[in-house]
């Protein structure tokens, strides 16, 4: 099977779209008709063939367009990718992990040949061919973290372990929800998450840190997180908040189905071998309400979840101002029928 890549944009005219197949494989995050914060961790990779959980790093029809969007963001603000000096080794670990995984899982798209430290990488969708020496950054056009994450969908945080804590010491962050890598780089796990309301009091991050510290090599995990975004925009950064913020107030009952997107983060956790750092890839999937409604189970369930959600969570996730319109729109698809267990469509 040869993958077709969409010609689409994530800003300006927002021509982003999901094919019917992309909709069916969308990682819908709700496995029941209500939502409460939970850790919901599973082993990764692993899942039904064709699902975004099947492979270590999912490649889909948005790959080329997402990489173009990242390049635009980086050209405007190169500090979206940073690596403190001691994190270069972790960057190489991540480069190896992604190259090996993609060449194994998508042999028609990527290839990697290795002869000792002489590596030869081919990325067909992006038209890249690179010979380089592994662990020698002078043989790449940029640092290993930036090099590989310009070719991998999703944001990437690299966490350094010391003093019983994890430190956000490197990352490629161009599609984040309201946090700035340039500001937060160098922070420990609690400092980095400090602005999240209530979570410390709930002990959420103590538990999360404990879990992350216990992640070992060769044993990776995933969880889904979600929020809502107006327009299919990847760069919802605080840096550009004054530019995209007004779009949040453009939702009307007429356009809510097309303009309001459910934004799902597929977060995975990997212990890297040489650096003992943790890699935390955060892959973003977008789906409009009207596309979600093409799956009756999802439409019913999303209606119930968003109708009954804790108002504080709606505020935190940033859709409280549009919640009434969203729920009203989704109500037309909810006939009150029971929904089947699990996240996959019927």
């Amino acid at each position: 099977m040869t993958m077709q890549f969409n010609d689409e944009t994530f800003r300006g005219d927002y021509t982003f779209h999901n094919s019917p197949e992309a909709i069916r494989r969308f990682p819908f995050p709700f496995d029941r008709d209500s939502y409460a914060y939970s850790v919901n961790i599973e082993q990764h990779p692993g899942g039904p063939a064709g699902s975004p959980f099947e492979f270590a790093f999912d490649v889909d029809e948005h790959y080329v367009a997402e990489m173009n969007d990242r390049a635009i963001t980086l050209a405007d603000d190169p500090m979206r990718c940073q690596s403190l000096p001691h994190m270069e080794l972790a960057g190489w670990d991540l480069l190896e992990l992604i190259m090996v995984s993609k060449a194994r899982d998508y042999p028609e798209l990527f290839s990697l040949s290795r002869d000792g430290t002489s590596w030869h990488w081919i990325n067909k969708p992006l038209g890249i061919e690179q010979r380089f020496t592994f662990l020698d950054a002078t043989t790449l056009p940029c640092g290993p973290l930036e090099y590989i994450t310009r070719q991998a969908q999703g944001d990437f945080a690299l966490l350094h372990e010391r003093e019983g804590n994890l430190w956000l010491d490197a990352g490629m962050i161009t599609s984040q929800a309201d946090w700035s890598l340039d500001f937060d780089v160098g922070m420990n796990f609690f400092e980095w998450h400090a602005p999240v309301p209530k979570a410390r009091k709930m002990g959420v991050f103590d538990k999360a840190l404990k879990f992350l510290l216990a992640v070992t090599q060769e044993q990776s995990y995933r969880r889904l997180n979600w929020t809502m975004t107006v327009n299919p925009r990847l760069d919802t950064s605080p840096e550009n908040y004054h530019k995209w913020g007004p779009e949040k107030r453009t939702i009307t009952p007429e356009n809510v189905g097309a303009k309001q997107f459910l934004r799902v983060e597929l977060q995975t956790f990997w212990r890297l071998p040489r650096s003992n750092a943790l890699a935390f890839p955060i892959r973003c999937y977008l789906c409009s309400l009207e596309d979600l409604a093409s799956q009756p189970k999802w439409a019913r369930r999303l209606h119930r979840v968003l109708r009954d959600i804790d108002p504080d969570l709606a505020e935190y996730k940033g859709f409280a101002v549009n919640q009434e319109m969203i729920v009203k729109y989704l109500a037309q698809f909810d006939d009150g029928a029971e929904t089947s267990p699990g996240i996959f469509p019927d």
Partner: peptide, 13 residues
């Protein structure tokens, strides 16, 4: 054996 784990890593800073 188990896969390697590290509780005594160097602080590369």
């Amino acid at each position: 054996i188990s896969a390697p784990a590290n509780l005594f890593q160097l602080d590369l800073r």
